[in-house]
Amino acid sequence: MIFPQAVTIAGSDSGGGAGIQADIKTFQERRVFGMSAITAITAQNTLGVHAIHPIPVNILASQLEALNDDFSITAVKTGMLVDEATIDTVVSRLRRFNWGPLIVDPVMIAKGGAPLVNDDAIKSIRQNLLPLASIVTPNIPEAETLAGMRIRSIEQIEKAAKQIQKLGVETVIIKGGHSEDKQESRDYVLDGNVAFWLGAKRIDTEHTHGTGCTFSACITAELAKGATTEYAVRTAKEFITRAISEPIYIGHGHGPTNHWAHRKENT
């Protein structure tokens, strides 16, 4: 038996709540061995992103090549990809590697509002990365950028998902955390020709740092184990809802989610 193995290609969050740190924690909680290729080092905490240092693309390429040479990878996700050169490096390798489903978390803006990618990178995500992806998981502002339209209603969410799907990705999940609904956070899932909504009671908390990373990482872990897309998405929704609802109160700003909150179900 080959133990499930997954890779995150993303930035490092020195505060430990997002980026590859959140991804690896999530992989571990879902009983998947996690690996990483770091795209950037950030000086970051719960109060914001203070500095970003992109990793040279030759070092990023070496990380990816080393992983491919030794491991049996069955799913991969991307997070912050910084710039066009980074995306091109990732795309060129993923086209050659047989790493299973690709989940794209189109990280563009930090929780505090700081931009994490430039305009050329956004263009490359749309044109080069998404055609390789099985799933993309934008929040509403990211979906607006990818679809090239404003989103203010349920109908516009559904239209935006179809627009993003036309870029070549099979499944589009537009997350509802940024919606104006005060009672519920509803995610819209367009999986091929099948569409459905996933809802959860909205939780009044500032401790949401790394939610997008954690959600997409959980999907990646489940797919690495061979789950269907719908099962993986529903599991991830339950996992992140539990992680938000039982915060651990770390830091003085937007604190991290609780990656081990789900363990109570098994005790």
Rank of each mutant, 00 (worst) to 15 (best):
T208D: 08
E84T: 15
G226K: 13
M35G: 02
D23I: 03
D191H: 12
H209F: 12
V104D: 00
T78G: 04
A110R: 07
P138E: 05
I203P: 01
V7Y: 08
S216Q: 06
L146G: 05
M80I: 10
D204N: 09
I250C: 15
D181G: 00
T137M: 07
P106N: 10
L190W: 02
E144M: 13
D23H: 13
A121I: 10
G100T: 11
D119P: 08
Q127V: 14
S72C: 13
Q183F: 09
L81T: 12
L81Q: 07
V172K: 06
A195S: 15
V90H: 00
K264F: 15
H50R: 09
E84Y: 11
I73C: 00
G17Y: 00
Q21T: 11
G177M: 02
E222T: 02
S62F: 11
V117Q: 07
M35V: 13
A221P: 06
I9L: 15
D119E: 10
H259C: 06
D13N: 09
I174R: 00
F27D: 03
G15N: 01
H254F: 12
V136A: 03
E230H: 08
S36D: 07
G16Y: 10
T42G: 01
D70R: 12
K162D: 08
G255N: 03
L167R: 01
S245R: 13
H178Y: 04
D119V: 13
S216A: 12
K162L: 14
L129S: 00
M1C: 09
T257R: 03
R234G: 05
P106H: 07
C218I: 04
N258P: 08
V76C: 06
G148K: 07
L116Y: 10
R234M: 09
V107Y: 02
